[in-house]
Every structure is written in C-alpha cells, then in structure tokens.
Design a protein around this nucleic acid. Structure first.
Length: 223
DNA sequence: GACCAGGCACATC
DNA sequence: GATGTGCATGGT
C-alpha cells in the first residue's frame, strides 16, 4: 500500500532522525548570534560564517549597542571571511536599525508578538528574504515556522514530492500542512535536510551516491 | 583552477 | 512574471 504525502513526510523525518540523530541547531549561544548567523550564512558555507562570528565575539560586538555604533567598514572587515562582506555588513546594520527603531533594540519585545505579524516586518528589511526571516523566527524566536532552503527544494523535488519550479510558499506548505506545528520538529527536520544535502546529495543533477527514493523504503545504506 | 556554499536585491525584458 | 547578474570568501 502506498504511503500518502503526510506519511511520507513523517517517515522521511523518522528515518533521518534515526540515522543522523539530533542536530543541535542553531549553532549559536544567543538570539542575536543566531540572527547574525542567519544573515551571514546566506549562500555561504557555515565554516566561513563561523570565523566571522568568532571575530565579532573577540571584538565583543555581539550586542545591539555596539553593532549600532560600529562603523560599517570596520564591521565589513570583521565579517570578511563570510564573503559578500560589504553587502552583509549593510544587512546586519539594516536589522539592527529595524530592531532599535521598532523595538527599542529589544529582541524579547520583537519576539513577544504574533509571529505571523512579525514575519512580514522582517521581510520588509532589505537583505532579509523568506529563508532568513523564517530562520530567525524558528531558530532565534522558537516560533513554529518551517525553513525552506536550497537543499529542501533539491531533495524533495528529486523525490518527486514537489515540482522542480515550486516556489518558497508551496514548499513550505508541504511541510506546514503535513506536520504538527512543533518547534522542535521543524528545528530538527530542517537541520537534518541540510546535513543530508551537504554530506550525501552533492552530486548534481542526479544523486549517484545515495538514491533518495531509498530513504522512503529504508534501503538506503548511507543514512 | 573550476566549482560550490544553509540568499537576496535589482536590472532588464 | 520570468530570467540574468552582482555580491566574495574559503574548502574540495
């Protein structure tokens, strides 16, 4: 008997979790650090982002007040390793300015509202798109929003569960409509997909190392 | 040395 | 609305 979509989505999660275990996301000690990481990791390997965050830590810059004060050129130099450093310095500043203007610099105040109202506000900030906004909501704010990224799209279109040209909302709905709205579940599921994508599904356009369909029937040896 | 990475905004058609 | 391009470092 064939599994329906809901069962497949849950089954993939169960298998990934069983094979790879809890991912312990997001790597970061504070809400602000997570938000900064979410902006810096845009189209960038985490290893490069990690160095940038270490630099900010060393300079004791991981707070709203100092990020407001720091000159943008200096900020850019500190995050150099994360790539696109000029643009990302601007994006960090944009977020900090938004936070100060609307919430007196308080993340607690920002998150202390209906997250469905916060999401469009975040999307208004230049440099924060859907994935970054949702990462902020889920990983920094602990709100039940599913994060969609390039790996999610690649993996699930290869599985034939979404069309290759699906947009962000469509993919997000696949998960949000078929899973319990559970922060821990959304947290782990996205992180597991990134792990799977990074380590196993690099080969394009077809994954030759690990046929993804085998995830579903449990035959996959790699995970 | 080519290719890729946990995107996004903007220009152009 | 769809498609193309700039942004940039560091690992494989």
């Amino acid at each position: 008997m064939a599994l329906d979509k809901k069962e497949i989505i849950s089954y993939i999660y169960e298998r990934l979790m069983k094979s790879l275990g809890s991912q312990g996301w997001w790597p970061g000690d504070t809400q602000l650090e997570i938000i900064i990481g979410a902006i810096l990791t845009q189209n960038t390997a985490w290893t490069n982002v990690s160095k940038a965050i270490d630099n900010l830590k060393k300079e004791k810059m991981l707070n709203v007040k100092d990020l407001k004060k720091i000159h943008i050129k200096k900020l850019a130099s500190l995050i150099r390793s994360a790539g696109y450093y000029n643009i990302k310095a601007k994006r960090l500043k944009n977020f900090i300015n938004f936070l100060i203007r609307n919430y007196q610099g308080g993340l607690k105040e920002m998150f202390n509202q209906d997250y469905l109202k916060l999401r469009p506000q975040l999307l208004q900030i230049n440099g924060i798109g859907e994935e970054t906004a949702d990462s902020i909501l889920l990983y920094a704010g602990c709100k039940p929003i599913f994060v969609v990224d390039a790996y999610t799209k690649r993996i699930f279109s290869r599985l034939g569960l979404i069309a290759e040209n699906s947009n962000y909302d469509e993919i997000q709905s696949l998960f949000m409509d078929n899973l319990e709205k559970d922060v821990k579940l959304f947290n782990e599921y996205h992180a597991l997909l990134v792990n799977l994508g990074k380590n196993i599904c690099k080969v394009r356009p077809v994954c030759k190392i690990c046929p993804l369909r085998d995830i579903i029937n449990g035959k996959c040896k790699k995970i």
